[in-house]
Design a binder for these strands. Structure first.
Lengths: 255, 255
DNA sequence: GGCTTACGAACAAAAAAGTTGTTCGTTATG
DNA sequence: CATAACGAACAACTTTTTTGTTCGTAAGCC
């Protein structure tokens, strides 16, 4: 086996726990090659992130089906593809534009891609706010709201009021599911309401999404595909679905 | 001379540049005992913080008179006293209260003191937002607004709208100057407007300030002392001024 | 209640990350 | 064109973080 960095082991543990439902400390130590003490420390971290629940001797999964995996994990998965998608989306934005930037890991990469650009950005997640607060070229606007733990996505009446008070050139929207049949969908109801408000306040809407989400549909409906002016996805996107999206009047970019 | 940590040298450089207006790289290297390469790296950092402007061969100060020193420096000065003041202020807040927390380094310490407490907090600075976003016990509310570089204090119409939409039990307000004659004053006009809005939305107002600020007065008037229900300062506060504050109807705590 | 097992604090060792100084090719400025 | 300053790259060093071990304590089980 190769090297074992800390983050790598955390992912391995999370996977094992999610799959089996619950796993003992000794078993995880054997699986990862680390000592039991290290496993305990890891489990403490994951418990604090809300990924799993600790009990004496092991841990059980807390990740519900119908909800995505925790933020810290998703942000590492498919980073390569997300970066390419983000770069493509950033290229669609012209200097001087005002942009509302959705929450989620793909949009966080868009924030990184916008560092150093002369644009006005209102991010809907504190992660993106933190990235852009170090970028002197960017005019940063913070929306009000209540941040959801770990995800740090802002939602609630304050967020919707902030969006309603402004008009943007472009909205960059992430999603949990996107296809021609069901439109753009999200797991969280509050999140969906915020996305709708962001779309309503923008002249142009760009959806960013990994190819995997083109075959998924989540609980909350946000907008039909006809509301999206462009979709940026990666090269793994299946031809049939991109054809359907194009037929629905959207420009599809594959990065 | 004693040891020379990185932060220590940065403060030394900032002081020298502020005093002389502009200083050469070679001179700073002689002054600090570090190599020129290290000085260049330091100047790069300080330039990014907006403390100074780099030119070939040296740097000139960007810190205007009438404005305080940069955030990164202030946050280290008198940390001990600030912690005591913050602990005292946090003790005045009961569990379950809703609190609006002003920007500034002293209020940032109050945020740290509130970690783990069961309270609802709306901080007016992103630094405090970042501290409290890792505190699961705290219900965090983020106000909208435009963050000022480095300081990351939120201001502008979005901030004032967020404050106007809510009513708090307590406002914890920092200041640049505070005395019975001139009331509570701030350097920045936008900041002053936000402070006023925070006070207007709160039932109770606690001002936190180091003793040094009791002898200062800044540009923008925020509120008369009569609007403050309590002032928390440190033991270095001069008796005459605390007496005048008490006479004006404020409870003075010395931590 | 007594036995077993897991836990976590404390310390030591190891690994990773950050700092600093040196060298040297590149670039700005007079 | 000459000079001085700059900054990338590397190595030596320092600091911080991570990991494993030991051991006393406490939780669960019979």
């Amino acid at each position: 086996m190769g090297v074992m960095t800390g983050t790598d082991r955390l992912r391995q543990i999370t996977e094992a726990v999610c799959e089996a439902g619950s796993v003992g400390v000794a078993e995880l130590a054997r699986l990862t090659g680390a000592s039991e003490m290290t496993i305990r420390r890891d489990l403490e971290v994951l418990a604090a992130q809300g990924v799993l629940q600790r009990y004496r001797g092991g841990a059980r999964s807390l990740v519900l089906r119908g909800e995505g995996p925790p933020f810290a994990l998703r942000s590492q998965e498919g980073l390569e593809a997300k970066r390419r998608i983000a770069a493509e989306a950033a290229a669609l934005i012209a200097d001087g534009e005002s942009v509302v930037l959705d929450s989620g890991t793909t949009c966080l990469e868009v924030a990184r891609a916008l560092e150093g650009r002369r644009v006005t950005v209102m991010p809907l997640s504190l992660h993106a706010v933190n990235v852009l607060s170090g970028a002197p070229e960017v005019t940063l606007l913070v929306p009000g709201g209540r941040p959801r733990p770990a995800e740090l996505a802002l939602a609630g009446p304050l967020t919707e009021a902030s969006l309603a008070a402004l008009r943007f050139d472009t909205a960059v929207i992430g999603c949990c599911g996107l296809n021609a049949a069901n439109g753009l969908t999200a797991y969280d109801l509050d999140d969906a309401a915020v996305k709708r408000a962001a779309i309503a306040s923008s002249r142009r809407v760009i959806a960013v999404t990994e190819a995997a989400k083109l075959t998924r549909t989540a609980l909350a409906h946000v907008a039909p595909v006809s509301a999206l002016h462009a979709v940026v996805t990666d090269t793994a996107a299946p031809d049939e679905e991109t054809a359907r999206l194009t037929a629905a009047g959207t420009v599809v970019h594959r990065a």
